[in-house]
């Protein structure tokens, strides 16, 4: 069997590029995804991991403890601020491309999630929120008995 290496194949890259195209089409106001305007910060990716919904957001330079995450009535809200980290020291800037300030983002969650079991992790500037499906929403195998 031929071995496909990650670097050659890059499924995430091509997958996300495709999704980006799709997203552009879906940003058309004719589609209502219940998501905030594009360009809002932080940018969010939504995934299905088989167990439920995974929400990922890129928040570089943000302290994990400062992230304010609230789930209420099928709305997930993410607020906080990214303070400047270099202001105190003297010197002149040659480049200033990074963004600082406050952020606030809300997304509508689909039905059938067990919000009580929401968990969140912050690692290397990326927030990952996992919300499992509620037991009722999971496919259930029904044993078929013979008469």
């Amino acid at each position: 069997m031929a071995l496909i290496r990650w670097e050659q194949f890059d499924p995430v890259g091509s997958m996300l590029a495709l999704q980006e195209e799709l997203g552009r089409a879906l940003r058309n106001p004719a589609f209502n995804l219940g998501l905030s305007a594009y360009g809002a910060y932080p940018p969010i990716n939504l995934f299905d991991d088989g167990e439920g919904l995974v929400v990922m957001a890129e928040l570089p330079g943000v302290e994990p403890a400062s992230v304010n995450l609230v789930v209420q009535r099928n709305t997930l809200t993410l607020t906080g601020s990214r303070p400047r980290d270099e202001a105190k020291e003297p010197g002149a800037f040659h480049r200033r491309e990074r963004e600082f300030g406050e952020y606030s983002r809300s997304i509508q969650l689909p039905e059938g999630l067990d919000l009580e079991k929401t968990s969140a992790r912050f690692e290397a500037g990326v927030l990952t929120v996992k919300i499992p499906k509620s037991p009722e929403a999971k496919p259930r195998q029904i044993a078929v008995e013979s008469a």
Partner: peptide
């Protein structure tokens, strides 16, 4: 990203 299938994406990885 091993077990994740995207539903909606706003940023590239």
């Amino acid at each position: 990203y091993d077990k994740l299938s995207p539903l909606y994406t706003e940023y590239n990885v």
